[in-house]
Design a protein around this nucleic acid. Structure first.
Length: 497
RNA sequence: GGCCCCAUAGUCUAGAGGCCCAGGACGCCGGACCCUCAUUCCGGAAACAGCGGUUCGAAUCCGCUUGGGGCUACCA
């Protein structure tokens, strides 16, 4: 027994560029990355774009951007290169051709001239008879020379000669031993006419050539694994270890699709979910930290990650918990970082930052009551723009009394003298006004909030006014008082609750 | 239909025969605090799919049933 060369752990994430980065794919990528982190391994990004018909323009770039935003870092890939490239299947044709030629020559694969239509009819018949749809093996015993001659003028596919005896056993790192009877499999197609490889063929060659040690992927691939192992055996390749992750399902337990709302990393970003929060949430779908900790960075998860702690049960994603987690990040990240993430939303909302406090100050004021960046920006809007509508119930409750405008004016004139304009002095001013008017302080606090923000809810009034500044506060107080005096209808917004 | 995987509260999960009349988190309900909302804190309702085994003892092991999911393409 020679000394075992400790192999460097190499894992890969191999998306098909058919759209944007799906959260299921994102989670798979994340787990691969975590596994690499934990074992000091390398992560390879490989683009599975053999089926040109399904390609979506710009998809690769979108995926790369999505992965990067989540904090997944790969060592090799189409964008960064590496020693095992190329990293796009569309650029690896020669490898597949060579492997296919080898199998054909050795008789482990054979040419099949059946047309797609014939095969479809065959399947149809089998289904009607209640038989499992399998390839009949019609071209299996075709004489090699005859087949070679026909190949000169007839299109054909290559099929793997699958042994009809014995079984193929997958040692899954998450599920344990899973056995498949070879007789259940038919001679599946490995290359299309023209030689373009099919998934179950190309993936084996790529994983072997890229020295992948662990294939960590979604459960939908578990049933494909024996086929790939058979291809590997036929080619005389070493098979990697496998680990099949549970799927992520929609709330109705069906496959996640667009009709269930956001399913891509991009959409969550648009919703105002921070990538850190999404990554953290995804981390918890199917894996749990041994210490029960939930709130953690990718690096921290990388320290503790272990496939043995990955769940076997499919998980349903929960928007509520995602938003809760996002709220946690909104509250704990440095305000400047939150401000940076919020900037695109500020722009989209048409807010002119020169009309109010710094974005960072605004973030500090409202982040405690926001769960998404959208909400955050919505909550800070009044700092930059006077409210254009007023909450209906709030108006009825706090501004309906005839004395309302009088009180607002009294408040405005007292506030005119407040200096410095800060929380404590504002608080004292309200005490003074309340005493002067002979009413409880709350009776002017609520009307003031309504006048200034148009809403009944929001940050503490004094912090809020401190951030708003004296000019805008006083102007808005008087403006609303005027509107009330002229008995004009305040523009109402639908009640919040 | 065939093959494969799975099964703890609404959801994510802890639990690898006695520590569990099942623990944590989100959500939900109630309360405290407060200028509102939110945060925070306190409290509460809520689960081992069913049935048979094995065992002195089963959420944990085995079988069956039921339920859910996946694969069964010249998609990945």
């Amino acid at each position: 027994m020679g000394p075992e060369e400790p192999r460097v752990v190499r894992v890969r994430y191999a998306p098909s560029p058919t759209g944007t980065l799906h959260i299921g794919g994102a989670r798979t990528a994340l787990f691969n990355y975590l596994f690499a982190l934990r074992h000091g391994g390398r992560l390879v990004l490989r683009v599975e774009d053999t089926d040109q018909a399904r390609q979506v323009e710009g998809s690769e770039t979108a995926m790369i951007r999505g992965l990067a935003s989540l904090g997944v870092v790969w060592d090799e890939g189409p964008d960064v290169g590496g020693a095992y490239g190329p990293y796009r299947q569309s650029e690896r044709g020669e490898h597949y051709r060579r492997a296919a030629a080898q199998l054909l020559e050795q008789g482990r694969a054979y040419r099949c001239f059946c047309t797609a239509g014939e095969l479809e009819d065959e399947r149809q018949r089998q289904r009607q008879q209640g038989r499992p749809p399998r390839y009949s093996g019609r071209c299996r015993e075709l004489d090699a020379d005859v087949a070679a001659r026909r190949a000169e003028h007839e299109p054909y596919v290559l099929r793997l000669r699958v042994p009809q005896q014995g079984s193929t056993v997958v040692q899954d790192l998450i599920r344990g031993t899973v056995g498949f009877e070879n007789a259940q499999l038919d001679d599946f197609v490995i290359t299309k006419p023209g030689g373009t490889p099919l998934y179950n063929f190309a993936v084996v060659i790529d994983d072997a050539q890229m020295a992948i040690t662990h294939v960590i992927r979604g459960e939908e691939h578990l049933s494909n694994t024996p086929k790939q192992m058979l291809v590997g055996q036929a080619l005389g390749l070493e098979v990697p270890a496998f680990a099949h992750l549970p799927m992520i399902l929609a709330p109705d337990r069906s496959k996640l699709s667009k009709r269930h709302g956001a399913t891509s990393v991009e959409e969550y970003r648009e919703q105002g979910i921070l990538p850190q929060a999404l990554a953290n949430y995804l981390l918890l779908l199917g894996w749990s930290s041994p210490d029960g900790q939930e709130f953690m960075t990718i690096a921290e998860a990388g320290q503790r990650f272990d496939l043995a702690r990955v769940q076997r049960t499919a998980a349903i994603y929960d928007q509520k918990k995602l938003e809760w987690m996002n709220g946690q990040y909104l509250r704990t990240l440095p305000a400047a970082a939150v401000a940076g993430a919020a900037l695109p939303f500020v722009r989209a909302a048409g807010i002119d930052l020169s009309q109010g406090p710094t974005l960072t100050a605004a973030v500090e004021l409202v982040r405690e009551r926001s769960r998404t960046l959208r909400e955050l920006v919505d909550n800070m809007r009044f700092l930059y723009q006077a409210p254009t509508t007023f909450d209906r119930k709030g108006v009825q409750k706090y501004l309906a009394e005839p004395v309302a405008s009088e009180r607002l004016r009294a408040l405005a004139s007292t506030l005119f003298t407040v200096a410095p304009w800060d929380h404590d002095h504002l608080s004292q001013a309200f005490d003074q006004v309340a005493e002067h008017l002979g009413v409880k302080r709350v009776l002017i606090i609520h009307p003031a909030r309504m006048a200034v923000t148009g809403k009944t809810v929001g940050p503490g009034l004094f912090e809020m006014l401190a951030a708003l500044g004296p000019e805008k506060t006083i102007r808005q107080l008087n403006r609303v008082a005027d509107l009330l005096d002229r008995a004009e209808e305040l523009p109402l917004s639908p009640a919040l609750d």
